[in-house]
Structures are given as C-alpha cells and as structure tokens.
C-alpha cells in the first residue's frame, strides 16, 4: 500500500502511515473544519491494511497536543480497529506520547488506554531536552 504523508496545518495533525513498516504516526493539533472528511480516508486505509493478509506488527505513535471532540471520535474509531485486529492475533502497540505537564492529554491517554485488552497501550511521557 502507498505510504500516506500529510503535513501538519494549524488545524490538522501530521499524518504518516507507512504500511510497509507497519508504522503509523499522528502528531500535533486536530480540529479540522470537517473532521469526518479528514479522517475517513485514513480510517479506510487503515482498515484495508489491517484486513489484508499482511500480518506484520503494528506500531502506532500518537503525540497529540490538542484535539476536538469530533477528532476524538475518529481516534476512538482507529483504536477500536486496532484493538479488533489485535484480538485476531495481530501484534499491535499503541504509544501515547504526551508532555508530563499536559493534564488533558495525560487524562485522554488514560481514558483511551482502558479500551485496549489485546493491543498493548503505553503511556509515554516525553522528556524535555
């Protein structure tokens, strides 16, 4: 599958889905004008990848600093897909990167983490350089 690379904007995150490596990245802020149309193609590609015969392990790295409620919905949909794939035997690791002073992102990470049983969800506080 073709690699997906989307540069960040003021209102949308950096996206890198490297299917050949099983590496996924989402970073930055997310409150797109129309979050459904921003995330729908990404969700579709992820579903195609997870349902393919390609069983390589998945590493999903998120470093979000802000997202609105409709983006949260899209993130939840992605996580449910990953958890389902893990339930079917795929190795999935989700790394939730956040600044240790960022209460909101820490709490969101803890909340999302509750939904994973088969996939491994890791809280990854960043360290200031």
């Amino acid at each position: 599958m073709e690699k997906v690379s989307i540069a960040p904007t003021d209102r949308s995150p950096l996206v890198e889905f490297d299917f050949s490596k099983g590496c996924f990245r989402l970073e930055g802020e997310s409150y797109p004008e129309d979050s459904a149309s921003f995330f729908a193609p990404l969700l579709k590609d992820m579903r195609t990848f997870l349902e393919s015969d390609d069983a390589r392990p998945v590493s999903f790295n998120l470093a979000m600093t802000y997202f609105n409620s409709s983006s949260a919905k899209a993130l939840m949909n992605m996580f449910q897909m990953l958890e389902d794939a893990a339930g079917l035997g795929r190795a999935v690791v989700v790394n939730w990167h956040y600044h240790p002073d960022d209460d909101t992102m820490e709490e969101f990470g803890e909340d999302f983490g509750l939904d994973f049983e088969n996939a491994e969800f890791r809280m990854c506080p960043t360290v200031d350089a």
Binding site: N68, S69, S70, A72, K73, M76, Q80, D115
Partner: peptide
C-alpha cells in the same frame, strides 16, 4: 465516543460533554 453518531446531531452531545 463509543456510540455511533446520533442522527442529525453531528456529534453535538460529545461537544457539550467536552
């Protein structure tokens, strides 16, 4: 977040909870 979006609400309920 886990529920399918309500018809005609475009996610308003989650926005208010946020």
């Amino acid at each position: 977040l886990r529920e399918p979006a309500e018809a005609d609400s475009q996610g308003a309920s989650i926005g208010l909870i946020e």
